[in-house]
Design a protein around this nucleic acid. Structure first.
Lengths: 213, 213
DNA sequence: TTGAAAAGTTGAACCGGTTCATTTTTTATG
DNA sequence: CATAAAAAATGAACCGGTTCAACTTTTCAA
């Protein structure tokens, strides 16, 4: 049977990932030793590197794994459209952030962000960029839907608005992840104010901002 | 004379910084070895660590050193106010970025950003945050001036607008620094579009966006 | 001038991520 | 089965940032 090798490979990969997740969660990125992951997974150090490029790749893999949950949450939020532009957008961002933090914690996320910026040229940076790109597309799609539903002005470039909102959110997320003194509630409050500021001129409906002098 | 020690210290510190700048510029952050800096500066490895916390601190020190030039450029741009809101804001951002890149190059900047995010709790992250905070204050001040000059709506919260613009710019800068395929011109084009999108509703004068349905 | 305390320098050793030559396991073939 | 080729696992060695105990230089009081 030639499936043995495949089965063993899948099993080892799974065990390494599981061990890594446990270690990262328990000790944080910096204090997690590859050695410890290898021992916990019942393999040698070399084998870990056989399955994963490097330490940060391992972390990225964990993020990607849980990507599907975020994906599901976003889908739900898009399918049950919010009553207003700001509720829709903030709802998606809050859900994403809540989930990300619960899953891996601040320390891992700031390392992931930091490393993906520093090593953009490498696999890590590239894949993280793709991951973000995908999320951005979902945001833009939601804006399109809201435009259909007359919650967003027809003359608004959703591509551009989406990009801007995503950039602002990303910075808030980075600030949250990299500052232990900042709580999730702080993040929500700050982001909401920014979103409101940006979105108000583009929101359709009785409450939008009067712009003529 | 008790000044000898002080003089020697200042001299060593200067030599180390000079050597570091040369190495960082020539080889980039990753490929610069502390060992090489020490040799170029004519001191031992231990001495380098006597003067600087660690490798990234050394890079941050170089950035801070040239901060004054950026400062000067910004002051000029604020003193000679631009004709429009968008020209003023983009002018400052473009100048900052142009100068930063010329000074240290992409590779060093993406590492600085990456490391300051990953190590926010440490001296590095903290000092980099302060550095950014200071720039943000200058931007807000410029917005205040423009508001005085009737280039920006009186009812606009300059604090908030400044924060948003700064966040968007920072993300564009990170994208520029971390992607070798992106040119400075690309950055300018992309950022300008975002700034225009955000600012148009708040710009005072004959050309501002008509917002009533 | 002297010598001991303070300040600073030094480089060998440490630590942990990563590599790679060697060994072990699995598969394919007669 | 037996065996050779292919695939994968292994851990000792490498590399470079960082630390620290030993050593040198400077200061300062007597």
């Amino acid at each position: 049977m030639s499936g043995l090798r495949e089965k063993q490979k899948a099993d080892r990969q799974r065990r390494i990932l599981l061990a890594a997740e446990e270690e990262f969660r328990r000790y944080g990125y910096e204090d997690t030793k590859i050695d410890a992951i290898a021992i916990a997974a019942g393999v040698s150090v070399g084998t870990v590197y056989n399955y994963f490029e490097n330490k940060s790749d391992l972390l990225l893999e964990l993020v990607t794994l849980h990507d599907r949950f975020v994906e599901a949450e976003i889908r739900d939020l898009i399918n049950n459209p919010a009553k207003s532009l700001i509720d829709g957008v903030s709802g998606v961002f809050f859900a994403m952030t809540r989930h990300s933090l619960d899953h891996l914690g601040k320390e891992n996320w700031r390392n992931l962000f930091g490393l993906s910026i520093a090593h953009r040229q490498t696999t890590l940076g590239d894949r993280f960029a793709r991951f973000n790109d995908h999320l951005l597309k979902r945001i833009i799609h939601m804006l399109d839907v809201m435009q259909q539903n007359a919650l967003l002005r027809k003359d608004c470039d959703t591509q551009r608005l989406g990009g801007i909102l995503f950039r602002v959110e990303t910075m808030h997320y980075i600030e949250l992840a990299s500052n232990d003194a900042l709580s999730y509630e702080d993040y929500k409050k700050n982001l909401l104010k920014d979103l409101d500021f940006i979105l108000t001129p583009f929101a359709q409906g009785p409450g939008w901002r009067q712009m003529t002098s």
